[in-house]
Design a protein around this nucleic acid. Structure first.
Length: 424
RNA sequence: GGAGGGCUGGCCGAGCGGUCGAUGGCGGUUGACUUGAAAUCAAUUGUGGGGAGACCCACCGCGGGUUCGAAUCCUGCGCCCUCCGCCA
């Protein structure tokens, strides 16, 4: 959520922002509503001030044994008028808030302008795509041949975009989770969290999934609970409504969770294999920090995610998302894309964002600064560290041999009981 | 699912229908003492909103109601805790 005061004082900046994000939002309607809100607020507050004073006088008169009935009648009428104005105000305020919740975040100056992902800026490349002396197979062919991925039964149990991992497939998935969590907790200073996978509406609103993106989420029919689309949601909201001490910052959290996404609007895309699933595993990284440090923290977070791929020796590149591709809640986002030989291109495996105070405002998460104790909103950051299922795919495709077997990266072997190869 | 208890500031906790935005303690900040720290003492310290400002308004889980006036009375709801039942 943006600061409403900033919005009404800088309408031109807001208009430019909306244009850059190609976001259709009726700013004039909001500004209009805000003006009405303040006008009515002024009336109501003046009336309340006079009622407060009148009530004090009634008390004084009664204590000294006088007759206050005329003043009491006057105050009763004022009270009725106040009730009317308060009702109008409540309606307008709710309207303002629901509009504010639909607005996107501001953009960092370094974000390149563009229409879509083709305008993303490549920042760096690490490792070189391997040259195969044979035609590399896609992971779904490898997975079915090795009997470690079962798409047919996944679809039968649930529907399409659900996959069953079997044997070494399940084992490597689990090994990757442990490998990543160990790395982030022992080398990067993150605290491991095991959060709920079902969260309430307020929590989903805190990180920005609601109200705008309700269609992308799985909702429980009989409860106010939603399946999390990413551990970003429970991790970032851990300190919902709290005032933290600056000395406690930055807070670094990591969690492995399953993630659930309806993938509405992506019909037909990536239907083969398990690149795009309704349920997938992810290790997430989240930071709460001060505004002064958030961009330095973003670089560190990106580095932590990159390290996973480096240790696994998987070639990747980092791109800076353009204004046309960046998420609604983010000021600046780096995507890490891993090389997938079967697709002959890089595919997203991590997304690292600085949301500044956008989520903190929604969550009411603030901190008391060391100097003078001023209270300010924290900055929140999140990134995948990294998507586990896609990492499994990347290993299978990048480390495949001509005979259809897969070589396990050395760094992962301690996590799979020394297994160095998956073969038929 | 059944029965009971609770929800007040950063935290803990007191609160009579009328200067209660709220006693007190802890914590924070500042100062004194100290080479420094601890301890001790003193002062100070809620959040949000409106206004150029003096200042004003709101907030005691949330929403209604009674009243000139509600943290306090009535009412509906939510959440938390305890016990019983069921259960991995």
């Amino acid at each position: 959520m943006l600061d409403p005061k900033w919005i009404r004082e800088n309408p031109d900046d807001v208009r430019e922002l909306l244009k850059k994000r190609s976001h259709s939002f009726d700013l004039d309607a909001l500004l209009d509503l805000e003006a009405r809100r303040r006008a009515i607020l002024g009336l109501a507050e003046d009336l309340k001030a006079s009622r407060n004073e009148g009530s004090r006088k009634v008390g004084d008169i009664k204590r000294s044994g006088g007759d206050a009935s005329a003043l009491m009648e006057e105050m009763r009428l004022a009270g009725e008028r106040i009730k009317e104005l308060d009702a109008q105000l409540a309606e307008i305020e709710e309207d303002v808030r629901s509009k504010l919740l639909m607005m996107p975040n501001r953009l960092d100056a370094s974000v390149p302008e563009g229409r879509d992902e083709s305008d993303n800026l490549e920042i760096k490349k690490w490792g070189a795509p391997k040259e195969f002396p044979f035609e590399p197979k896609p992971h779904w062919e490898l997975g079915e041949a090795l009997d470690i991925m079962d798409f047919k039964r996944g679809a039968r149990l649930s529907e399409s975009r659900f996959t069953v991992l079997k044997g070494h497939g399940a084992r490597v998935e689990r090994a990757l989770i442990n490998f990543m969590l160990d790395l982030h907790t022992t080398r990067h200073g993150y605290r491991e969290i095991m959060p709920p996978l079902l969260v309430n509406s307020a929590t989903m609103q805190g990180t920005g999934q609601l109200p705008k993106f309700a269609d992308d989420q799985y909702k429980c029919a009989n409860d106010d609970l939603w399946l999390i689309p990413t551990a970003e949601v429970p991790l970032t909201n851990l300190h919902y409504g709290e005032i933290l001490n600056e000395s406690d910052l930055p807070l670094l959290y990591t969690a492995y969770t399953s993630c659930f996404r309806r993938e509405a609007g992506s019909y037909g895309r990536d239907m083969k294999g398990m690149l795009r699933q309704h349920q997938f595993d992810k290790v997430e990284l989240v930071k709460l920090c001060t505004p002064e440090t958030s961009y330095a923290e973003l670089d560190l977070l990106l580095g932590a995610a990159e390290r996973v791929l480096r240790l696994l020796e998987l070639p990747y590149r980092v791109v800076l998302l353009s204004t046309g591709d960046i998420g609604n809640a983010s000021c600046k986002t780096y995507d890490i894309e891993v090389w997938l030989p079967s697709q002959n291109c890089y595919r997203e495996i991590s997304s690292c964002s600085n949301c500044e105070d956008f989520q903190a405002r929604r969550m009411g998460t603030r901190y008391r600064s060391k100097d003078g104790g001023r209270i300010r909103f924290v900055h929140t950051l999140n990134g995948s560290g990294i998507a586990v299922g896609r990492c499994l795919i990347a290993i299978m495709e990048n480390c495949q041999r001509e005979d259809g077997s897969i070589v396990i990266p050395e760094a992962l072997r301690p996590y799979v009981g020394g297994l160095d190869r998956i073969a038929v």
